[in-house]
Design a binder for these strands. Structure first.
Lengths: 334, 334
DNA sequence: CTGAAAGCGCTAACAG
DNA sequence: CTGTTAGCGCTTTCAG
């Protein structure tokens, strides 16, 4: 555990000089630099990150706060964030919030104490106060996937309302004449936007009635329960657009248990594009977001902000794309 | 950003005293403690974790190194680790290694520099040198899921060989008379143990032949390819035991594409007990490990080691349990 | 281009 | 029970 002092001594220079060469800042004579590098090698010197953090207030660590890493959507995002972070020499702290404001706040407290360099927030919308506080403490923030566009921070999101409309249109095209929607928790922006998109797309049809919109929870079981509820009220539904893939998978499962054939009797379309959709039988049609790209873009923006390469807040809305698969491929279409 | 000095001044005591009350160590007079607490409140003082880390060499941070958070098995483990860590006031750094030794080593370097308090290793078996090095640097280590039992560190694992035998026996009981095995990468201990367990269970049968053991990669696509390969050589196979659930899912998928009915024509059994097995159609029989428990146990042991509550290395082998589902429920059994 | 020196904010002997 | 005082190992002015 050699220290910078040992290196300085061995190289016959001051610690300041050593610091300059390891940080590549300030002018250092070529010769001196060589001496220093040699000393570093000889002593197997590795700068101590904690000491560095204390002195510079930068720790090379970012945090990603998400609802639950067990959710494949967030796992993929987290993976992207970590990959991008590593590329830039940053390390990632994982925080599962379960969408509980309390946990989120606790984390933010802890992270501040740890001199975290920045935060990627993919959990429930954080309040304006939080954003303001982060800003005051001068800790960069980028919000991922779930954020109203008015917040004062960088945002990476995708076209939710539009995607929902695309989904509905697709279901109509495959021949559906009564399409229901399973929506996610309305505190979550994306869920709300998708619901709005659905409403917008269907409100002109005479078959539309508000009870075609049934609540879910963005989880598998929510999708299952929603289907049961839905079919009680509307046994004649022939298309379901779920607010996310997890619920679509749940719906598929429930339909299967009820002995209802997909897509013949009911077509199903999800939203997100997680890999699960490809695994299911039938494979699930979905409105795919570029999940990995969203994660790495968020990390990239964050790191640029940290490095000061980027000043203004970015608001990126990425494109979604419909991936048509067997869960909406009707007999008649073949 | 009040510092401990500000608090000391306001409370009219020394920084040492303040340090004592925030760390709850050493004796402090009740009255003084009250004064200090009051000062802390007034100033909204929050001890700086980095400074603390530098002075004490403990950062309240642990790392979990795993192959890929995108793999549901590891996501669940990571979740468990994080939950347990948070309970104890620790924070978790996420490291995806892709089972590449190089990445693992790089991480270990970085983590050392950051004064990480301990590491949970769920990635490819790390070499004895690594373990020794960790030990030298006095950084606690617990190896999760994938480790030979001879290493000099704490280990949390489950009964792989036994589980494999249970799987084979189960397949036999459901009426299979020619059972194949798709095994995982042999560098990975668990894969090897399961293969051995399979061999042990089947070697007495006259139908057994080595080509019934086909290689996979512990991933979905590996399971799919393995099935194709297998059926070319052994069209009469009527049972498949996959080395993990992901490959079992892949196998299911491939069989479905080939128009082979599961379980009627071929029964399939996986290993791990990830939630995916419940989602599939048919639901997948699997030898379940207590994944979450493994993660939290590992974290618990690690934290005890960090806190000095625990000295000796623990080697925990947890029980597996067969969960029989429709992928092995044969016609004849109904 | 280089060095001296003052911290960063806290912990932990050691003395009292 | 409490205060003094060294550091922890590095960064960063400020002179030179």
């Amino acid at each position: 555990m050699a220290t910078i002092r040992d290196v300085a001594k061995l190289a016959g220079v001051s610690v300041a000089t050593v610091s300059r060469v390891i940080n590549k800042n300030g002018y250092v004579n070529q010769g001196t630099e060589q001496k220093v590098r040699k000393a570093i090698q000889q002593l197997h010197f590795e700068p101590n990150a904690v000491a560095r953090g204390l002195a510079s207030k930068r720790t090379g660590t970012i945090a990603v706060i998400l609802p639950d890493i067990t959710n494949p959507f967030f796992a993929e995002m987290a993976r992207a964030v970590e990959d991008e972070a590593r590329k830039h020499g940053f390390t990632v702290i994982l925080c599962n919030s379960d969408d509980q404001g309390a946990k989120e706040k606790t984390y933010i407290e802890v992270l501040k104490k740890k001199y975290i360099d920045g935060i990627i927030f993919a959990s429930q919308t954080l309040g304006k106060e939080d954003v303001a506080q982060m800003k005051k403490h001068n800790i960069p923030l980028v919000v991922l996937d779930r954020a109203p566009s008015e917040e004062d921070c960088s945002i990476v999101r995708s076209q939710n309302s539009m995607g929902a409309q695309v989904a509905v249109r697709h279901l109509l095209e495959t021949g559906c004449r009564k399409i229901a929607h399973i929506y996610g928790p309305q505190e979550i922006t994306t869920a709300k936007e998708r619901l709005l998109g659905y409403e917008h797309a269907v409100k002109g049809f005479d078959w539309f009635t508000p009870t075609l919109m049934v609540p879910g929870n963005f989880r598998l079981d929510g999708g299952m329960k929603a289907v049961e509820l839905l079919l009680e009220q509307h046994p004649d539904v022939d298309g379901i657009f779920a607010g996310n893939d997890l619920m679509a998978v749940g719906a598929l499962k429930a339909l299967h248990r009820l002995g209802i054939r997909v897509p013949d009797q009911i077509a199903v379309c999800g939203f997100d594009g997680i890999y699960l959709t490809e695994i299911m039988e039938p494979e699930l049609t979905t409105v795919a977001q570029p999940i990995y790209e969203m994660g790495s873009l968020a990390a990239e923006i964050l790191i640029q902000k940290i490095n000061g390469t980027l000043q203004e807040n970015q608001v990126c809305e990425l494109e979604v794309s419909l991936i048509a698969r067997n869960s909406t491929r009707r007999e008649r279409m073949k």
